[in-house]
Amino acid sequence: MQAAFRHGWLSARTTLGWTWPGAAALAALLVVAGAGVIEAQSVTLENGARRVENSLLDGVTFGLVLPLLAFALSSRLDAGKDALMGSLWVRYGVGRRAFALGRLAFPVALTSAVALVVGSLALGLGAASSAPSLGLGAGIGTSWGALFGCALLAAASYTACLALAQLLGGAWGRALFLLGDWLLGSGEGVAALPWPRAHVRSLLGGDAVLGMIPATSGAWLAALTLTCLLLYVRKVPS
């Protein structure tokens, strides 16, 4: 089990290399920096600074960069059955399910790390764009621990959902999931319930889904991630 997970992790790392993730992280940083510069021009009051912070975190980091990065990693790693069936170490006898989980763990770690770095930059830009006299308070968006938790949970949920979508519907499944997440996850009603975007937004202090408190949204997101992972693992032959 342990060896299979390790081989999965190493396989994902070998497939991705270092150039591609590095370039993706750099691009993400540039996007947030660019958005920060544009947003900073509208800051005049404490509310404005808070709005910039929310916009950079919720809108850019977790709303744009993270889903796109998770999508790109998913398409590059190919979590589909065909790719898993013929993996080298699986053929030599390691468990396919643990291998698949290891292969998903690497993009989770990478995506959450990028989200953490980019989120930190967003927080920094939010703080920098407000005058010290405005006294930007520390909410969930400005707590580093919470940011880390959000990044990890969001990365895990997107990776798990995309993996399941890939397994069920191939490349089209993945694309449809991203589209559904964008269109339906932006709402606050029942239709937004199964999409990670809605709960991540709620966790970051945005609009709640069906009036849930952030902790409930977090639990919902964790349950969604676990369900997707469970279904994914069940669909993969051992």
Partner: peptide, 23 residues
């Protein structure tokens, strides 16, 4: 063999295409 790691561990194989990438 496709669904049993223990069975695969006891199969010696050479595939038509050995196109794996490994570090």
């Amino acid at each position: 063999p496709a669904a049993s790691p223990s069975a695969r561990r006891q199969i010696a194989s050479l595939l038509p295409s050995e196109s794996w990438t490994q570090a």
